[in-house]
Amino acid sequence: MIAENVNSSSSHFSALFKKRTGFPPIEYFNHLKIQKACQYLQFTQLRIKEIAFKIAINDQYYFSRLFTKVMGLSPSEYREQRSTPRV
Rank of each mutant, 00 (worst) to 15 (best):
M1F: 07
M1H: 09
E4F: 10
E4M: 10
N5K: 14
N5V: 09
V6N: 05
N7S: 14
S8G: 02
H12T: 15
F13S: 06
S14I: 05
S14N: 11
A15N: 11
L16E: 14
L16S: 11
F17Y: 02
K18I: 01
K18Y: 01
K18T: 13
K19I: 06
R20N: 10
R20F: 13
T21A: 00
G22D: 07
G22T: 09
P25F: 07
I26T: 11
I26A: 13
E27A: 13
Y28V: 07
Y28A: 15
Y28P: 05
Y28D: 09
Y28K: 07
F29G: 01
N30D: 14
H31D: 08
L32D: 05
L32E: 13
Q35V: 08
Q35P: 01
K36A: 15
K36Y: 06
A37T: 11
A37E: 08
A37K: 09
C38Y: 05
C38H: 05
C38P: 04
Q39H: 12
Q39R: 11
Q39A: 12
Y40S: 00
T44C: 07
T44A: 05
R47K: 15
I48L: 04
I48R: 03
K49E: 15
E50I: 00
I51T: 06
A52L: 00
A52D: 01
F53Y: 09
F53L: 12
F53I: 06
K54N: 14
K54F: 05
A56T: 09
I57S: 07
N58G: 15
N58R: 13
Y61K: 12
T68M: 03
T68E: 14
T68F: 09
T68Y: 11
V70K: 02
M71W: 02
M71D: 02
G72V: 09
S74V: 00
S74C: 01
S74G: 01
P75C: 00
S76A: 04
S76V: 10
S76N: 03
E77N: 11
E77K: 13
Y78P: 01
Y78V: 02
R79G: 00
E80H: 09
R82D: 06
S83L: 15
P85V: 00
R86L: 06
V87L: 12
V87W: 06
